[in-house]
Design a protein around this nucleic acid. Structure first.
Length: 264
DNA sequence: AAGAATGTTATGTA
DNA sequence: CTACATAACATTCT
Protein backbone atom coordinates (compact mmCIF):
# COMPACT_ATOMS: atom_id res chain seq x y z
CA UNK A 1 0.00 0.00 0.00
CA UNK A 2 2.81 2.42 0.28
CA UNK A 3 3.68 5.48 -1.71
CA UNK A 4 5.35 8.52 -0.19
CA UNK A 5 2.25 9.75 1.63
CA UNK A 6 2.02 6.52 3.65
CA UNK A 7 5.61 6.83 4.76
CA UNK A 8 5.49 10.46 5.82
CA UNK A 9 2.27 9.81 7.66
CA UNK A 10 3.87 6.89 9.49
CA UNK A 11 6.90 9.00 10.42
CA UNK A 12 4.69 11.62 12.07
CA UNK A 13 2.54 9.07 13.82
CA UNK A 14 5.43 6.97 15.07
CA UNK A 15 7.39 10.00 16.22
CA UNK A 16 4.37 11.16 18.19
CA UNK A 17 3.87 7.84 19.90
CA UNK A 18 7.44 6.67 20.41
CA UNK A 19 10.02 9.44 20.21
CA UNK A 20 11.72 10.41 23.45
CA UNK A 21 10.56 7.20 25.13
CA UNK A 22 12.06 3.89 26.06
CA UNK A 23 10.60 1.37 23.65
CA UNK A 24 9.98 -2.32 24.03
CA UNK A 25 11.27 -3.83 20.81
CA UNK A 26 10.34 -7.32 19.70
CA UNK A 27 10.72 -9.41 16.60
CA UNK A 28 9.06 -12.83 16.53
CA UNK A 29 10.48 -15.54 14.32
CA UNK A 30 13.93 -14.18 14.79
CA UNK A 31 13.67 -12.21 11.58
CA UNK A 32 15.01 -9.09 13.21
CA UNK A 33 16.09 -10.75 16.41
CA UNK A 34 19.55 -9.20 16.56
CA UNK A 35 18.18 -5.71 16.14
CA UNK A 36 15.36 -6.27 18.60
CA UNK A 37 17.74 -7.56 21.25
CA UNK A 38 20.06 -4.62 20.80
CA UNK A 39 17.36 -1.96 20.84
CA UNK A 40 14.91 -3.33 23.38
CA UNK A 41 14.40 -0.82 26.18
CA UNK A 42 16.39 1.91 24.46
CA UNK A 43 15.14 5.39 23.72
CA UNK A 44 13.91 6.24 20.24
CA UNK A 45 15.13 9.72 19.34
CA UNK A 46 13.50 10.47 16.01
CA UNK A 47 11.79 9.12 12.92
CA UNK A 48 12.66 10.47 9.51
CA UNK A 49 10.92 9.92 6.17
CA UNK A 50 12.59 10.37 2.81
CA UNK A 51 10.64 9.22 -0.21
CA UNK A 52 9.47 5.71 0.63
CA UNK A 53 12.23 5.17 3.19
CA UNK A 54 11.96 5.46 6.95
CA UNK A 55 14.84 5.91 9.39
CA UNK A 56 14.39 5.34 13.12
CA UNK A 57 17.18 6.88 15.19
CA UNK A 58 17.99 5.33 18.55
CA UNK A 59 20.00 6.59 21.49
CA UNK A 60 22.54 3.86 20.74
CA UNK A 61 23.44 5.65 17.51
CA UNK A 62 21.86 2.83 15.55
CA UNK A 63 19.39 3.49 12.78
CA UNK A 64 16.63 1.11 11.76
CA UNK A 65 15.91 1.40 8.07
CA UNK A 66 12.44 0.40 6.95
CA UNK A 67 11.09 0.14 3.43
CA UNK A 68 7.57 -1.20 3.03
CA UNK A 69 7.97 -2.47 -0.52
CA UNK A 70 4.81 -3.76 -2.11
CA UNK A 71 3.34 -5.62 0.84
CA UNK A 72 4.70 -3.90 3.91
CA UNK A 73 2.19 -2.58 6.38
CA UNK A 74 2.09 -0.87 9.77
CA UNK A 75 -0.59 -1.59 12.30
CA UNK A 76 -1.19 0.42 15.40
CA UNK A 77 -2.59 -0.88 18.66
CA UNK A 78 -3.78 1.39 21.46
CA UNK A 79 -2.70 0.42 24.94
CA UNK A 80 -1.51 -3.13 25.47
CA UNK A 81 -1.27 -4.95 22.14
CA UNK A 82 -2.17 -8.59 21.47
CA UNK A 83 0.65 -11.09 21.01
CA UNK A 84 2.43 -10.34 17.76
CA UNK A 85 1.46 -12.51 14.81
CA UNK A 86 4.09 -14.84 13.33
CA UNK A 87 4.51 -12.53 10.35
CA UNK A 88 5.19 -9.51 12.55
CA UNK A 89 8.70 -8.44 11.72
CA UNK A 90 9.03 -5.64 14.22
CA UNK A 91 7.05 -4.42 17.20
CA UNK A 92 7.78 -1.15 18.94
CA UNK A 93 5.70 -0.72 22.08
CA UNK A 94 5.31 1.92 24.79
CA UNK A 95 2.64 1.98 27.52
CA UNK A 96 0.33 4.10 25.38
CA UNK A 97 0.37 1.78 22.37
CA UNK A 98 2.34 -0.23 19.85
CA UNK A 99 3.35 -0.23 16.22
CA UNK A 100 3.61 -3.54 14.37
CA UNK A 101 5.34 -3.97 11.04
CA UNK A 102 4.67 -6.82 8.60
CA UNK A 103 5.89 -7.68 5.14
CA UNK A 104 8.56 -5.02 4.59
CA UNK A 105 11.15 -5.22 1.86
CA UNK A 106 13.66 -3.78 4.31
CA UNK A 107 13.90 -3.72 8.08
CA UNK A 108 17.53 -3.56 9.01
CA UNK A 109 20.03 -2.04 11.36
CA UNK A 110 22.46 0.46 9.91
CA UNK A 111 24.60 3.43 10.81
CA UNK A 112 24.82 6.97 9.50
CA UNK A 113 26.90 5.76 6.58
CA UNK A 114 24.22 3.34 5.52
CA UNK A 115 21.59 6.03 5.68
CA UNK A 116 23.67 8.35 3.56
CA UNK A 117 24.27 5.65 1.00
CA UNK A 118 20.52 5.37 0.59
CA UNK A 119 19.94 9.10 0.48
CA UNK A 120 22.49 9.63 -2.27
CA UNK A 121 20.45 7.51 -4.63
CA UNK A 122 17.22 9.32 -3.86
CA UNK A 123 15.96 12.28 -5.81
CA UNK A 124 14.13 15.22 -4.24
CA UNK A 125 11.08 14.32 -2.17
CA UNK A 126 8.20 16.76 -2.78
CA UNK A 127 6.97 16.22 0.77
CA UNK A 128 10.19 17.52 2.26
CA UNK A 129 10.92 21.19 2.80
CA UNK A 130 14.52 20.70 1.72
CA UNK A 131 13.50 19.34 -1.70
CA UNK A 132 14.87 21.10 -4.78
CA UNK A 133 12.31 20.93 -7.61
CA UNK A 134 14.89 22.10 -10.14
CA UNK A 135 16.82 18.88 -9.65
CA UNK A 136 13.72 17.04 -10.87
CA UNK A 137 13.07 19.46 -13.72
CA UNK A 138 16.65 19.26 -15.01
CA UNK A 139 16.69 15.50 -14.84
CA UNK A 140 13.40 15.19 -16.75
CA UNK A 141 14.27 17.70 -19.46
CA UNK A 142 17.59 15.98 -20.13
CA UNK A 143 16.28 12.45 -20.38
CA UNK A 144 15.02 10.54 -23.35
CA UNK A 145 13.34 8.00 -21.08
CA UNK A 146 9.54 8.11 -21.00
CA UNK A 147 8.24 10.46 -18.34
CA UNK A 148 6.20 7.57 -16.93
CA UNK A 149 9.46 5.74 -16.24
CA UNK A 150 11.11 8.84 -14.80
CA UNK A 151 8.34 9.43 -12.28
CA UNK A 152 8.79 5.92 -10.89
CA UNK A 153 12.57 6.32 -10.75
CA UNK A 154 13.31 7.15 -7.11
CA UNK A 155 16.56 8.84 -8.07
CA UNK A 156 14.60 11.32 -10.20
CA UNK A 157 11.84 12.03 -7.69
CA UNK A 158 11.34 10.22 -4.39
CA UNK A 159 7.99 8.99 -3.17
CA UNK A 160 5.98 8.50 -6.36
CA UNK A 161 4.52 5.04 -6.98
CA UNK A 162 2.25 3.51 -9.54
CA UNK A 163 -0.94 5.34 -8.51
CA UNK A 164 0.55 8.82 -8.32
CA UNK A 165 2.38 8.20 -11.58
CA UNK A 166 -0.86 7.43 -13.40
CA UNK A 167 -2.91 10.14 -11.74
CA UNK A 168 -0.41 13.01 -11.79
CA UNK A 169 0.29 12.53 -15.50
CA UNK A 170 -3.42 12.37 -16.13
CA UNK A 171 -3.97 15.57 -14.17
CA UNK A 172 -1.42 17.38 -16.33
CA UNK A 173 -2.64 15.83 -19.59
CA UNK A 174 0.75 14.25 -20.26
CA UNK A 175 1.02 10.83 -21.83
CA UNK A 176 3.39 8.55 -19.87
CA UNK A 177 5.19 7.53 -23.07
CA UNK A 178 6.33 11.04 -23.90
CA UNK A 179 10.06 11.43 -23.53
CA UNK A 180 11.22 13.57 -20.64
CA UNK A 181 13.17 15.87 -22.92
CA UNK A 182 10.07 16.54 -24.98
CA UNK A 183 8.26 18.15 -22.05
CA UNK A 184 8.39 21.91 -21.78
CA UNK A 185 9.98 23.43 -18.72
CA UNK A 186 6.55 24.60 -17.62
CA UNK A 187 5.11 21.13 -17.98
CA UNK A 188 7.90 19.64 -15.87
CA UNK A 189 7.46 22.26 -13.13
CA UNK A 190 3.68 21.86 -13.15
CA UNK A 191 4.11 18.10 -12.90
CA UNK A 192 6.25 18.53 -9.79
CA UNK A 193 3.66 20.85 -8.27
CA UNK A 194 0.86 18.41 -9.02
CA UNK A 195 2.73 15.50 -7.50
CA UNK A 196 3.43 17.56 -4.40
CA UNK A 197 -0.20 18.55 -4.02
CA UNK A 198 -1.36 14.97 -4.50
CA UNK A 199 1.14 13.62 -1.99
CA UNK A 200 0.17 16.26 0.57
CA UNK A 201 -3.45 15.43 0.08
CA UNK A 202 -2.61 11.76 0.56
CA UNK A 203 -0.86 12.52 3.84
CA UNK A 204 -3.87 14.49 5.03
CA UNK A 205 -6.45 11.86 4.10
CA UNK A 206 -4.40 8.75 4.65
CA UNK A 207 -5.45 7.49 1.24
CA UNK A 208 -5.15 8.42 -2.39
CA UNK A 209 -8.14 10.21 -3.83
CA UNK A 210 -7.45 12.27 -6.93
CA UNK A 211 -11.03 12.59 -8.20
CA UNK A 212 -13.60 15.20 -7.29
CA UNK A 213 -17.13 14.02 -6.54
CA UNK A 214 -18.37 17.09 -8.39
CA UNK A 215 -16.71 16.02 -11.62
CA UNK A 216 -17.84 12.41 -11.23
CA UNK A 217 -21.37 13.57 -10.59
CA UNK A 218 -21.54 11.43 -7.44
CA UNK A 219 -22.30 12.74 -3.97
CA UNK A 220 -19.22 12.56 -1.76
CA UNK A 221 -21.01 10.13 0.53
CA UNK A 222 -21.53 7.67 -2.31
CA UNK A 223 -17.91 7.64 -3.43
CA UNK A 224 -16.36 4.26 -3.05
CA UNK A 225 -13.25 2.35 -3.94
CA UNK A 226 -13.14 2.58 -7.72
CA UNK A 227 -14.20 6.22 -7.71
CA UNK A 228 -10.91 7.44 -6.28
CA UNK A 229 -8.88 7.64 -9.48
CA UNK A 230 -9.39 8.85 -13.04
CA UNK A 231 -7.33 6.25 -14.88
CA UNK A 232 -5.50 4.06 -12.37
CA UNK A 233 -7.13 0.63 -12.57
CA UNK A 234 -10.00 2.05 -14.58
CA UNK A 235 -11.35 0.57 -17.80
CA UNK A 236 -12.99 3.83 -18.83
CA UNK A 237 -11.62 7.29 -18.18
CA UNK A 238 -13.58 8.85 -15.33
CA UNK A 239 -13.33 12.23 -17.04
CA UNK A 240 -14.21 11.63 -20.69
CA UNK A 241 -15.57 8.08 -20.59
CA UNK A 242 -13.18 6.89 -23.31
CA UNK A 243 -11.22 3.64 -23.00
CA UNK A 244 -8.17 3.65 -20.74
CA UNK A 245 -4.99 2.17 -22.21
CA UNK A 246 -3.32 -0.40 -20.01
CA UNK A 247 0.12 -1.82 -20.68
CA UNK A 248 3.19 -2.99 -18.85
CA UNK A 249 6.24 -0.89 -18.10
CA UNK A 250 9.08 -2.57 -16.25
CA UNK A 251 6.72 -5.20 -14.95
CA UNK A 252 4.17 -2.72 -13.61
CA UNK A 253 0.79 -1.75 -14.96
CA UNK A 254 0.65 1.62 -16.62
CA UNK A 255 -2.57 3.49 -17.34
CA UNK A 256 -3.45 6.43 -19.51
CA UNK A 257 -6.37 8.00 -21.31
CA UNK A 258 -5.19 8.69 -24.87
CA UNK A 259 -7.86 11.33 -25.32
CA UNK A 260 -7.07 13.31 -22.16
CA UNK A 261 -3.32 12.63 -22.38
CA UNK A 262 -2.24 13.13 -25.98
CA UNK A 263 1.25 12.66 -27.34
CA UNK A 264 2.22 9.12 -28.41
C1' DA B 1 -9.26 -19.48 -3.81
C1' DA B 2 -6.06 -18.22 -7.47
C1' DG B 3 -4.42 -14.02 -8.68
C1' DA B 4 -3.32 -9.41 -8.31
C1' DA B 5 -1.23 -5.66 -5.89
C1' DT B 6 0.34 1.67 -4.10
C1' DG B 7 8.34 -1.94 -4.66
C1' DT B 8 13.18 -2.64 -5.08
C1' DT B 9 17.27 -4.98 -6.37
C1' DA B 10 20.17 -8.31 -8.60
C1' DT B 11 21.02 -10.75 -12.58
C1' DG B 12 20.42 -12.14 -17.33
C1' DT B 13 19.91 -10.88 -22.31
C1' DA B 14 19.90 -7.97 -26.50
C1' DC C 1 27.61 0.64 -21.82
C1' DT C 2 22.54 0.92 -21.84
C1' DA C 3 18.21 -0.73 -21.62
C1' DC C 4 15.28 -3.88 -21.37
C1' DA C 5 13.13 -8.08 -19.10
C1' DT C 6 12.77 -11.50 -15.50
C1' DA C 7 13.12 -13.38 -10.95
C1' DA C 8 13.21 -13.08 -6.18
C1' DC C 9 11.50 -11.39 -1.78
C1' DA C 10 7.62 -9.97 1.15
C1' DT C 11 1.74 -10.59 2.65
C1' DT C 12 -3.01 -9.42 2.31
C1' DC C 13 -7.12 -8.93 0.06
C1' DT C 14 -10.80 -10.09 -3.13
Amino acid sequence: MPEGHTIHRAATEHRGLLAGREVEVRSPQGRFADGARLLDGRRLDDVEAHGKHLFYRWDTGDIVHVHLGLFGKFRRHEGTPPEPRPTTRLRMAVPAGAIDLTGPTACALMDEGGRERILTRLGPDPLRDDADPERFVRRVLRSRAPVGTLLMDQSVIAGVGNVYRAESLFARGIHPSREGRDLTEDEARALWDTVREMLRDGVRRGRIITTSPHELGIPRSRMRRGDRTYVYRQDACRRCGGPVERWTVAGRNAFACPACQPGR
